[in-house]
Amino acid sequence: MKYVILMHSNPQPWGHPTSEFLAEHQALPPEERERRSAEFDEVLKELSQSGELVGGQALGDPRDARLFRWEGGRRKVTDGPYAETAEHFAGFFLIDVASQERAEEVTAKFSGPGETVELRPLFA
């Protein structure tokens, strides 16, 4: 079963890994930040070795995004995602796992202070 893990975040300034730029993460003791980083690296290594990690990618600054819409029968292109958005889509991981339970187990390891992580199955 394939799932996408969507990372939502809004670090100021924009950077990756996004957690390192979030006030909630920065407020953690240095040992806790290091532990979380090591755990994240270990999860990625485990998923790669098991073949469950299909791919993933961090996204650039949302200020560089362009929206393409139709308005009045014509294409309209505007800057950025949304001006007053609290969170932006920061990146994704595509996984192929045996069950929804496994997908949820993996996704739980991707969430951290100040971030929202969304798990969504691919359309079959």
Rank of each mutant, 00 (worst) to 15 (best):
R63S: 15
G80C: 01
H16Q: 08
Q49E: 15
A23M: 10
P81Y: 11
E39V: 01
F93Y: 14
A98S: 09
R74T: 01
E104Q: 15
A23P: 14
V43L: 13
S9C: 04
V4Y: 07
D79P: 00
M7T: 11
L44D: 07
Q26D: 02
M7V: 12
V54P: 13
G15V: 00
Q12L: 06
Q49F: 08
A98H: 05
E105L: 01
T78L: 04
S37A: 14
D64K: 14
H88C: 11
F93V: 00
R102Y: 05
A90H: 00
Y82T: 10
S48N: 06
S50Y: 11
Q49S: 14
R69V: 07
S9L: 02
Q100C: 09
P11T: 08
V4I: 14
K76A: 11
F68N: 08
E24Q: 14
R33V: 02
T78M: 03
E84I: 04
G60S: 14
F40Q: 13
A58H: 10
L44S: 13
T85K: 12
P62D: 08
F40M: 13
E71N: 14
E105V: 01
Q100W: 04
V77N: 07
P29R: 09
D79C: 04
E32L: 04
G56M: 00
V43F: 04
G60Q: 13
H88V: 02
F40E: 08
N10P: 04
R35D: 05
H88D: 15
E101D: 14
A27N: 15
D96T: 01
A58L: 08
I5M: 01
L94K: 04
D96V: 00
Q12A: 11
E52R: 09
V54S: 06
Q26R: 14
A27R: 11
Q12I: 10
P81A: 11
Q12T: 10
P13G: 00
E34A: 12
M7G: 09
T18V: 15
S48E: 06
A103R: 10
D41G: 12
R66I: 07
D96H: 06
L53C: 02
F93Q: 10
L94F: 00
L53I: 00
R69I: 02
Q12P: 00
E24D: 12
V54C: 09
Q49A: 15
A86H: 09
V43C: 03
R74Y: 01
